[in-house]
Amino acid sequence: MARKPFRFESSLSLTRYTGFAADNLRALLRGLERVPGGSIYHHLHHALFRRHFAIGAFANDFAVWCWKELHEEALGERLTILDPLEFSTIRAARNRLIEEVDRHLGSIEYIQHVPHPRQFFFQESQTFVLPTGREATDLPEFAAEVRKASPDVIFHHFVVATLRVGPGENDFSVWIEEECKKPDLAQKLRELSPYSVDLFTLQKRIADLVLLHA
């Protein structure tokens, strides 16, 4: 029994168009340098929500655009492999993206332009955090709640938590380690990558793992 219960919250996002659009790689670079941090966050992380059964592997929006619309496959591949959880700040992520795009621009002779509907439209997220009214005081209860939760709950506590609680960290692991005194389980959860499966599968894996070690 934990001293402090785990209170489940969920976060919802409202997407907004920033007014910045890029029709070529140079314009993408300019955008990466200038758009609000919320836009970098949105395009790196929110692709997870737009993932679909049809898409085999996670790819952030920048990678997909370079690959699919500009047909810059080499750059697309390099951007695809970036792990959003590697960056503990938006600035770090922005700098890395700029570095990759800038380096690629230096290596190509021709800059491809695309028409309006195929442009990259920089968007940003406004985040709303709301209580779910659900809590858990021990691990079996915790596993049961995780299983019932909506993907927004998993996204909030497990995916973007890294921006609040530190690199490679998440709310679930912190609670399990500090309140339930199960450091091994906490570590096992840290090792799950949200970007290797979809949110529904991730949810199930977390619940299974917790139940196994409860």
Partner: peptide, 22 residues
């Protein structure tokens, strides 16, 4: 419907980007 409610919260909060707690 959920998105509409978020939009209403958004204009009420001045459309800020930092997280809004409901």
């Amino acid at each position: 419907l959920k998105s509409w409610l978020l939009a209403m919260h958004s204009v009420r909060s001045g459309a800020r980007i930092s997280p809004t707690y409901i």
